[in-house]
Design a binder for these strands. Structure first.
Lengths: 111, 111
DNA sequence: GTCTATAGCCTAGATAACCTAGGTAACGGA
DNA sequence: TCCGTTACCTAGGTTATCTAGGCTATAGAC
């Protein structure tokens, strides 16, 4: 399986994962990626070429808002936080994921 | 959530679901879709515009083979069955799914 | 003093999967 | 006659992701 094939599964869940990460509080993009990878023992890889467009996309949709700030390491960084709309979307997507993954796992016998 | 947004989750799992369906024995395309929808209480919808290209794609990759035959309702239908390569692929993809969905569920708290 | 790694952000272009929306054909029932 | 179902096919659009680059700045090694 190529990396492309492996990571296709991310399709549609990346946004949800980002929303969830931000539900713990504001974070900058780089930190979101690091947090997700760490939290899942590297099972999830978040490429920057996917991450930043996703953040931009979601801000445009009104799910996030951002401000420039300074990171823990004293570097310039853009911090994102959830909007009310983003929070609502997160709940809907979590439900959609539960339903979908439940169905798939049932079929595949990985329940 | 638009249908497009909802069904994005299918990305990358449709092939696996098809392989799994065929692991129970040969089936024609239409029956694969019906079986998956029934098996998941309609939680998964398999559009024909996704299904047939997927079957074609997978046959081209050597994961499936097909012959024309006659359906239960006496209609002309193309029956697909797994190749050895398809069976191996199924196992790999089931593992990838377990790892991926486990990671996502852990993050989302839907474990 | 230069080189490399790390922290950060950004984007153009390619790829590929899925859906929409059509089409074909044959059959059965109202 | 018309509609619903079974069954297959495909062109074209959308869109998310990845590849592969580029940028700036700091810190440490050599």
């Amino acid at each position: 399986m190529t990396p492309r094939e492996r990571n296709q599964l991310l399709h549609g869940t990346l946004d949800t994962l980002i929303l969830k990460t931000l539900s713990h509080g504001p974070r900058h993009g780089y930190a979101i990626a690091r947090w997700l990878e760490e939290e899942t023992d590297e099972a999830l890889r978040v490429e920057e070429g996917s991450l930043y467009p996703a953040l931009y996309r979601m801000e445009k949709k009104g799910l996030l808002r951002s401000e420039w700030g300074v990171s823990e390491l004293e570097r310039r960084a853009k911090f994102y936080h959830l909007t009310r709309k983003g929070r609502a979307r997160l709940e809907a997507e979590i439900e959609a994921w539960a339903s979908f993954s439940g169905a798939v796992s049932r079929v595949l016998g990985t329940g």
